[in-house]
């Protein structure tokens, strides 16, 4: 068995007081130039980032961006072709066994014994670890009380996902990996999971999550990295990512026939023109001027602009600007 005493000598300065983890300086995850190819496909093509202790860090990107491969290398489940990976001060490539008792993992597809009940699966996984949280506490935390004695094969997709997250927490880990945790969840369950993640953070634990939901990333992540085609395009806090690119606000409306990009680019204050799912986005420093020009132009064409709205730029706009396409098609 892996030594798991968190006060162990040589393990550093991690000490647990009640349920709080007293934090030490230095990142919990450090990745340097990680590469992994499958044949011709460069699934991960030179990824570097760091996650600080007590931080919720997000890997944001479309399916196939390389998020899952990256996370599974960090969990010790895959061997990279090259690169340095340090997790909780342990080399996750060479000594993954030293890591396993200290991390919690929820895979992208909930991996559950189909014939066992919710409580049986939790008790089973709990028995793999020398210490952890009581099953009843996790059942309550993930709101699975009514499903305690249901076999996992009879759970809905969202319930399976909740159980998968509960399993990631059975050993009360210092660092939790959640790969697309809210996929298949209804909005209420999603909000509940967000509370769980924020609770982990407030008790000093660190979380690495992947998602392709912008809203989720904006609400949960202290910092995030935007991935596409195996590379990190940009990273930072949400505010940094947005303001680095957009000083402007976006005026949005459904595209109007006969109103071309070239003409809109000349409207007062407009810095750039984008298209998103049949809508036009005008990034502008002069919102009233731009709206006035839009109304005048549409009036001239004999139409009224539909769904006219103003908003701050979002991560979605950042992604669109970085990759030229929307995150979810």
């Amino acid at each position: 068995m892996t030594p798991t005493s968190q006060q162990g000598p040589g393990r550093g300065t991690i000490a647990r007081m009640s349920s709080q983890i007293q934090t030490a300086a230095g990142p919990v995850i450090r990745v340097r130039d990680l590469r992994k190819s499958y044949g011709q496909l460069h699934a991960v093509d030179g990824v570097s980032f760091e996650v600080e202790r007590g931080e919720v860090f997000g890997l944001l990107g479309p399916n196939g961006a390389g998020k899952t491969t990256t996370v599974e290398v960090l969990e010790g489940l895959r061997k990279p072709d090259s690169g340095e990976v340090s997790v909780l001060g342990v080399d996750a490539v060479r000594s993954p066994d030293q890591l396993k008792a200290r991390i919690g993992v929820s895979l992208q597809t909930a991996a559950l014994y189909p014939k066992l009940t919710v409580v049986e699966v939790l008790d089973l996984f709990r028995s793999f670890y020398p210490s952890g949280r009581p099953t009843s506490e996790l059942v309550e935390l993930m709101d699975l009380g009514e499903k305690r004695t249901t076999r996992t094969q009879d759970l809905s997709g969202g319930q399976r996902q909740r159980l998968s997250v509960a399993l990631a927490l059975v050993n009360d880990p210092e660092l939790v990996f959640l790969d697309e945790p809210t996929t298949g969840m209804d909005p209420a369950a999603r909000r509940m999971l967000w509370d769980v993640v924020l609770g982990l953070k407030s008790s000093g634990r660190s979380v690495l999550l992947t998602t392709h939901y912008m809203e989720e990333a904006e609400i949960l992540c202290d910092r995030l990295a935007i991935m596409d085609h195996g590379r990190i395009l940009e990273s930072g806090t949400v505010d940094e990512l947005v303001s680095r690119r957009f000083h402007e606000r976006a005026v949005r409306f459904d595209a109007i026939d006969g109103l071309g990009d070239a003409r809109m680019a000349g409207f007062p204050g407009v810095a750039s023109v984008k298209h998103e799912n049949g809508a036009v986005l005008l990034f502008t420093r002069d919102v009233p001027g731009t709206i006035g020009a839009v109304l005048a132009a549409s009036d001239g064409l004999g139409v009224e602009p539909v769904s006219l709205a103003v908003r701050r730029a979002t991560l979605e706009d950042v992604f669109l600007d970085l990759t030229g396409r929307a995150l979810r098609d």
């Binding site: 066994d97 396993k100 008792a101 014994y113 793999f128």
Partner: peptide, 16 residues
């Protein structure tokens, strides 16, 4: 079946 359902992979992420 356990391999196909990623259960073996999930177990590999535990100290088992």
């Amino acid at each position: 079946a356990d391999r196909q359902k990623h259960i073996l992979k999930r177990l590999q992420a535990t100290p088992l």
